[in-house]
Amino acid sequence: MVARAPKLFVGVGNVLAGDDGVGVRAAEIMMGLPLTPDVDVYEAGTALLELAAVLELRERVVVVDAIDAGAEPGQIFRLRPEQIRSQEGLPLSLHQLGLLHALDETHLRGRAPGEVVLLAVQVGNLSGGMKLSPAVKASLLRLLEAAVDELDLGLDLRDCLPVSPASREPALNR
């Protein structure tokens, strides 16, 4: 096995279900950034059943996922696993149980990761095929900045993403 980086970014979601794919899109953008070797990026899709192996023994994990909390589309929530657990039964996150399951597996094997933070984006449209809705797409930069901050990556996204000439904002053409 290759030595694993202490920090981990995980993107979760179904790219066939519109905004549900936001975590996957975020992971794809992360993979294109000039990252240092102390961070890994993992795109899980909806295959959360085998996520435990990836989470084990990491010091810091950020999971980016879609959520339906009845808020404004594109709104970003910062949650801890304990908060998801205490909400059990509510359709809070679309993949929350899979994530909790994977975390429980790491505990059972005595190899749980250190700090785990979930950044969850309120979805607007789940039937948009492979496209994100405008509100969720517009949240991507804030989402990535939050993730970079949580993982303490010391990156300024405005320096490393291509900039749109019109808006002078980083262009996330997804």
Binding site: N14, V15, L16, T46, L48, L49, G98, S127, G129
Partner: peptide
């Protein structure tokens, strides 16, 4: 609606995209 998503795409995309049907 996987069938609707695939229509009009390059056939080689199918083995990538259909994997996303199921986790």
């Amino acid at each position: 609606g996987i069938e609707l998503i695939l229509r009009g795409r390059d056939p080689r995309d199918a083995s990538r995209i259909t994997q996303r049907i199921c986790g």
